[in-house]
């Protein structure tokens, strides 16, 4: 029995020391940042050998909810200021670290082989457009940007019947790629990822600029390392990665 206990304690000791050796950052970022941030994460790990960056991608409001309920997140990057404001209101992020690091463009996209020719938003009212994918405005910034534009053009109510609500902007992109919907609102960066399946019909002029804020969380246990990650995002290297994916300057 004593030998078993010894092996068990040694094993436990090794497990504990193994995890203490390197620092790990948990970054909660908006779904549209998936590819760009994974690339930045790889760059960060190259510059900080031994440290790891783990990502959690979802709709921005969902991420705020998770942090509010105690998720051990170090960095939060959202796709609009409204989600970040929710985080500020809930005292979830360190306001001094908040920084707008990128911009984007909202586009109306259609499946690649679609016969539709849409030149303005009003064209969505045509009989041929039966299903329009839009992310849930209550939880997804992309949905909010789209709704604001449609409200301004007095089209929201008229098109209501045709909306298919998705959980995040990548699900909208997926429905477009599969041809399940006739049109959908995604970011230019998302559409660019699936050029073979999705075509941009027109660029949507949003009522306010599409801005991506990033901040360190108040509950972060690696605040110093988190700030270094944000520094990388702000730096020339980080910005060029973002621009490579189609994000615009903040």
């Amino acid at each position: 029995m004593p030998r078993l206990q010894l092996i068990f304690s040694l094993g436990l000791l090794l497990a504990v020391t193994g995890s203490v050796a390197a620092d790990e950052l948990l970054v909660s970022a908006a779904a549209s940042l998936t590819d760009a941030f994974k690339s930045i994460g790889a760059e960060f790990e190259r510059a900080h050998p031994g440290d790891k960056v783990v990502f959690n991608f979802a709709a921005s409001d969902v991420l705020v909810k998770q942090i509010a309920e105690g998720a051990p997140v170090d960095i939060f990057a959202s796709a609009d200021e409204e989600a970040m404001d929710k985080a500020v209101k809930g005292k979830l992020i360190v306001a001094t670290t908040k920084f707008n690091f990128a911009g984007n463009r909202l586009v109306l996209a259609v499946p690649r082989d679609s016969p539709l020719r849409l030149s303005k938003l009003e064209d969505l009212n045509a009989n041929a457009v039966r299903r329009i994918a839009i992310s849930q405005p209550a939880t997804v910034p992309a949905g909010r940007y789209a709704k604001a534009v449609l409200d301004q053009g007095r089209l929201w109510g008229v098109l209501q019947e045709r909306f298919i609500y998705t959980q995040n902007v990548r699900q909208t992109l997926d429905y477009l790629a599969r041809g399940e919907v006739d049109a959908g609102f995604v970011y230019a960066t998302d559409a660019a990822l699936m050029k073979e399946k999705v075509r941009v019909a027109l660029e949507v002029t949003t009522t306010r600029p599409v801005a991506y804020p990033i901040a360190v969380t108040t509950a972060s246990k690696n605040a110093r390392l988190a700030r270094e990650f944000i520094d990388l995002v702000k730096s020339g290297a980080g910005q060029s990665i973002l621009q490579k994916f189609g994000f615009t300057k903040p």
Binding site: D61, K65, A68, A138, T139, F163, I164
Partner: peptide
């Protein structure tokens, strides 16, 4: 259901999806 329904209120937004979305939206 979440994958194939589209969460359309009155047509495909089932109670499970409604609860999920309400929680996510902070309602």
């Amino acid at each position: 259901t979440l994958m194939i329904a589209g969460s359309i209120p009155g047509k495909t937004q089932t109670i499970s999806i409604a609860i999920y979305e309400a929680v996510q939206a902070g309602q």
